[in-house]
Write a protein that binds this DNA or RNA. Structure first.
Lengths: 225, 225
DNA sequence: ACAAAAGTGTTAAGAATACACCCATGT
DNA sequence: ACATGGGTGTATTCTTAACACTTTTGT
């Protein structure tokens, strides 16, 4: 570490991956297997080698540490580039973070990580570096993203009920919404369409299933919320 | 360049600095003094050394190349981190770009640049790398920023008329706005206040001067445009 | 008196909010 | 028959959009 041949800071990537589990927002964490912070939980990330782009490195490292494939996510976007991890003894670093949204993701332990799993936001344990701050930052971004894009599609199944949609919004925004107004407004945005199918679940009226017109990120003209 | 001791891509910074000149939006460019693209115009930027943060490096390099001080700008924010400059023969690089807004900025030639000057957006010459794309990207960001913050303050003098304010919006958004609706709406946002002063200029009624309540970035609850 | 930009108000359409009851099903 | 979540409409307020004439000054 002395006699460092580098001329420029080391470049890291990391990712904040969200998904819904039981209508609650969760974030993907992995348990570190090396110092610094050996044994602590952290966002999946690592050093970018010379021959990869940022997105390639993020994809590879995410897979190596959590067995999650970046391209199975519905939305991936660059979040922010942070300076020096607090507490990193190896001098300055630059960390390019991405934000990802997905569903039905099952992380696994890998040779490079002890465990990987999604944690409810409210149950996130003590994290390495200042990754808690980064998760908050990502959540803020996600919240604003929901207001001017259809990004919520990435968190929902292909067919979903209005209640699921509303609950997803509530989970991300962290507040309750009015059922009638929500439906009226969301339908008027023209992002979704009815299907002829129904979801039967339990002792109550079956719920109509809807689907998004587009499974890629679209920008709204009128903003939501 | 062969036998490269680096393990991770080189980190560059660059900045897209906008200001208004004669009610038109302009961008700060500098003429390159080295290969690649020796002699072509480009956004001011350079390599980040080991001992500086991204913002420190941006500040220093901007000053070295254009004599502009980053901290004399009203708004500075990270724009995006781009992979590899197209055409850079030195292998992969990462370029962290910032967006800056200012007024009354006078760039100068320096030992590290032939010239530096603000160009009207429509007169931007052929640029090194793909810096044209980056300017477009920055302009998009600026446009959306105007809709949910008071960022326009950074482009205007401390005291300004409603016409100046509206013209500034029009210059950035690239479209005409209705005078009465603009004033009504902007005043209702509560960002500015009247002063008791007037701006006299030419053969017409003097214009009342206004000022911003805050000279730092504020986020609106209601969005503009 | 004229030219030039500053300043001002109303109406109509659309969007947001608040709010309570009936419906279809399983047990 | 009851418990459960699904589904629906109206009235009020606020916001947006369209639109034209008078005011004040300098020459």
């Amino acid at each position: 570490m002395q006699d460092d041949p580098r001329k420029t800071p080391e470049v890291f990537v990391a990712a904040v991956i969200f998904q819904l589990i039981d209508n609650e927002l969760t974030v993907l964490l992995t348990q570190r297997q090396r110092d610094p912070f050996n044994g602590l939980w952290a966002l999946p990330g690592g050093l970018v080698p010379l021959k990869e782009t940022l997105l390639q490195a993020t994809t590879r490292i995410l897979h190596e540490k959590t067995a999650v494939k970046l391209n199975q996510l519905g939305v991936v976007e660059q979040l922010y580039t942070f300076d020096t991890f607090a507490g990193n003894p190896n001098g300055p670093t630059v960390s390019v973070m991405h934000l990802g949204l997905g569903k039905d993701i099952v992380p696994k332990a890998t040779p490079l990580s002890r465990h990987s799993q999604f944690y409810l936001l409210k149950d996130v344990p003590e994290l390495a570096f200042d990754h808690s701050t980064k998760i908050d930052f990502a959540l803020q971004r996600l919240r604003s993203k929901l207001s001017y894009t259809n990004a919520i599609f990435a968190l929902l199944p292909t067919l979903f009920t209005m209640s699921q949609l509303q609950t997803a919004y509530e989970a991300v925004l962290g507040k309750k919404l009015d059922k009638r107004n929500f439906r009226k407004k969301f339908i008027s945005l023209g992002l979704i369409q009815q299907t002829s199918e129904y979801h039967m679940s339990g002792a109550h009226r079956p719920a109509r299933l809807y689907k998004f017109n587009s499974q890629t990120l679209e920008y709204l003209t009128r903003s939501f919320d």
